[in-house]
Amino acid sequence: CHSECLGNCSQPDDPTKCVACRNFYLDGRCVETCPPPYYHFQDWRCVNFSFCQDLHHKCKNSRRQGCHQYVIHNNKCIPECPSGYTMNSSNLLCTPCLGPCPKVCHLLEGEKTIDSVTSAQELRGCTVINGSLIINIRGGNNLAAELEANLGLIEEISGYLKIRRSYALVSLSFFRKLRLIRGETLEIGNYSFYALDNQNLRQLWDWSKHNLTITQGKLFFHYNPKLCLSEIHKMEEVSGTKGRQERNDIALKTNGDQASCENELLKFSYIRTSFDKILLRWEPYWPPDFRDLLGFMLFYKEAPYQNVTEFDGQDACGSNSWTVVDIDPPLRSNDPKSQNHPGWLMRGLKPWTQYAIFVKTLVTFSDERRTYGAKSDIIYVQTDATNPSVPLDPISVSNSSSQIILKWKPPSDPNGNITHYLVFWERQAEDSELFELDYCLKGLKLPSRTWSPPFESEDSQKHNQSEYEDSAGECCSCPKTDSQILKELEESSFRKTFEDYLHNVVFVPRKT
């Protein structure tokens, strides 16, 4: 048989008469490798580009789960590009990614509803959504962080984005990388972005840091009482949809009607710091009717980097990364020049730590249904340095008659930039024990000054392991946590139920 035959053949030295091919099969003959313009397919066939392209389009058009959109890589027609490569849609070739590779997620039936953290986790790592997304989240724990972890990498949506009755959302900033909504599939009414009845939605994105392009379709905003109209108009300008909307697409009466839409800028007039305090004062603000001013709200939190936005980490279910302080308005003076500047002394802060701070007014709604208010920009203030805590785990070892090696770990709280350490030492008198000992005694162990690591005695271990207080009263049991108490109650309830079950099964009433 021919060298490319495997198993047997019907005619000697003829690659077209093989029972099976050793390498690849091409047009009725066995070959060692697939010549151009053919590609290896499933490690035994040679196919042309049209064959591989037909497989790709067949799966793409069917949208069946589990099928493969075949691509070409290293002269092979394979189910998908290997790690580190992405497909070129024009020629199906796998090309190296520039940075992290995109991950295209194809949605069944063309859309997916995100109504819980669990459903959001199914899209973790996706960068391109081939379909439409509907966000409908009523509640949950730590929602802002969970949504950002699972949806934060999405850069492109081919269909539309719909935010509907998501009472738990305060902001859409968890879509931190969303840059493009194509609108290839539109919501009824030709809408590519749809926001309806979101009672706590206050911000779409921080438009000073976020760009969003909507290729096709219109915007729809109705019944978002805490979303200011200025935020919607800003989205029109940034996304390129200005002029597409009709009169009733953006409701003037049901958007922002319960919001404090600040239209003035508060400026800080005085800032002073110490290692654990920050004193702030800002310019006074009074609405047209000074009785509408209820006070100020001061927001602050630790910020290692200057990239904080107002609604980071917030949701309507209680999660809030900001510390909020309510401040009463100052006494009002008739003389504008003698107006008191409101302020606040922030206490209990960490030394040498940068804080993000902003302040906003708290006002009631005027009778004319106009909203007044003022808010400052987010500023960054760093507390002063102070003395560091003591170095940890000092170790001293003498390696000769004239040297001592000293080692330690950095302090747990540096409280500033540590530039150097101060080492103090003092000579001590020799131990009298060394002169009084009889060095001729056998088995004498000389006193040693070398360091030995501390260890816990058996008594201390027994005390720590004991669940009861000892007789001397030195140790006591740790208080039980809520989960331990709940577990004990469940076990007790189970024992009672099981005992009742045994009584009912074992003891049967005697027939009379």
Rank of each mutant, 00 (worst) to 15 (best):
K103N: 06
K103P: 13
V104M: 06
V104I: 00
C105R: 08
L108A: 13
G110F: 05
G110D: 12
G110T: 07
K112H: 15
I114D: 02
V117A: 06
T118H: 14
S119A: 04
S119E: 04
A120R: 03
A120Y: 05
A120N: 01
E122D: 08
E122R: 15
E122T: 14
R124Q: 03
R124P: 05
T127A: 12
T127I: 09
T127P: 03
V128I: 11
G131W: 01
S132P: 01
L133M: 11
L133C: 01
I134M: 05
I134W: 04
I137G: 02
G139E: 02
G139C: 07
G139S: 10
G140D: 12
N141K: 09
N141E: 07
N141P: 11
N142P: 14
N142Y: 07
N142D: 12
L143R: 05
A145S: 08
E148T: 09
A149R: 11
A149Y: 14
N150F: 08
L151S: 01
G152T: 01
L153P: 12
L153A: 12
L153Y: 05
I154S: 02
E155N: 08
E155F: 02
E156R: 03
E156F: 05
S158Y: 13
G159N: 03
Y160D: 03
L161F: 10
L161N: 01
L161S: 01
K162Q: 15
I163A: 03
R164V: 05
R165T: 05
S166R: 01
Y167I: 04
A168G: 06
L169E: 13
S171T: 11
L172H: 02
S173P: 04
F174K: 01
R176C: 14
R176F: 05
L180C: 13
G183P: 06
G183T: 02
G183H: 03
L186A: 06
L186H: 15
L186Y: 12
E187I: 13
I188Y: 11
I188S: 06
I188A: 15
G189L: 15
G189P: 15
Y191M: 09
S192P: 13
F193L: 12
F193W: 04
Y194T: 14
A195D: 04
L196G: 05
N198C: 00
Q199S: 06
K209I: 15
K209L: 11
N211P: 07
L212D: 03
T213R: 09
T215L: 03
T215I: 14
T215K: 06
Q216N: 07
G217A: 05
K218V: 11
L219S: 10
F220N: 14
Y223R: 06
P225S: 03
P225E: 05
K226M: 05
K226Q: 03
L227P: 00
C228V: 03
L229M: 05
E231Q: 15
I232G: 05
H233G: 08
H233Q: 05
E237T: 10
E237Q: 05
E237A: 09
V238G: 13
S239A: 13
S239E: 02
G240Y: 12
R244N: 05
R244I: 07
Q245D: 12
Q245Y: 06
E246V: 12
E246I: 03
R247P: 09
N248L: 14
A251R: 07
L252Q: 12
L252I: 10
K253H: 14
K253Q: 13
T254P: 05
N255E: 04
N255W: 04
G256H: 08
A259V: 06
S260V: 07
C261Q: 02
C261E: 04
E264H: 05
L266M: 05
L266F: 03
K267H: 10
K267D: 05
K267C: 06
K267I: 15
F268H: 01
I271M: 10
S274D: 14
S274Y: 13
F275R: 15
D276A: 13
K277R: 11
L280C: 14
P288D: 05
D289P: 01
R291K: 02
R291L: 02
D292W: 03
D292L: 02
L294C: 07
G295T: 02
M297Y: 00
M297R: 00
F299Q: 13
Y300T: 06
Y300M: 12
Y300G: 03
K301V: 04
P304H: 15
P304V: 09
Y305T: 07
Y305A: 09
Y305S: 08
Q306R: 09
Q306A: 14
Q306F: 02
N307A: 15
V308K: 09
T309Q: 14
E310Y: 14
E310H: 13
D312A: 13
D312Q: 03
D315Q: 14
A316Y: 15
C317S: 04
S321T: 09
T323I: 11
T323A: 14
V325S: 13
V325K: 03
D326K: 12
D326G: 14
I327G: 02
D328K: 10
P329I: 05
P330M: 04
L331S: 14
S333F: 04
P336T: 07
S338D: 15
S338F: 10
Q339L: 10
N340S: 11
W344P: 02
W344K: 12
W344A: 15
L345S: 07
L345Q: 04
M346S: 10
M346W: 05
G348L: 10
G348P: 13
T353C: 07
Q354A: 06
Y355K: 04
Y355F: 13
I357V: 15
F358K: 13
V359W: 00
K360P: 03
V363E: 00
V363S: 03
R369P: 05
R370D: 05
R370Q: 04
R370L: 04
R370V: 03
G373V: 02
G373D: 02
D377H: 05
I379G: 07
I379T: 14
I379R: 04
V381M: 09
Q382R: 07
T383C: 06
T383Q: 01
D384C: 08
S389P: 00
V390D: 02
V390G: 02
P391N: 00
P391D: 02
D393T: 14
D393K: 15
D393I: 15
I395R: 13
I395L: 10
S396K: 12
V397K: 15
V397I: 15
N399M: 14
N399C: 11
N399W: 12
S400Y: 14
S402V: 15
S402M: 15
I405T: 03
K407F: 07
K409R: 11
P410V: 01
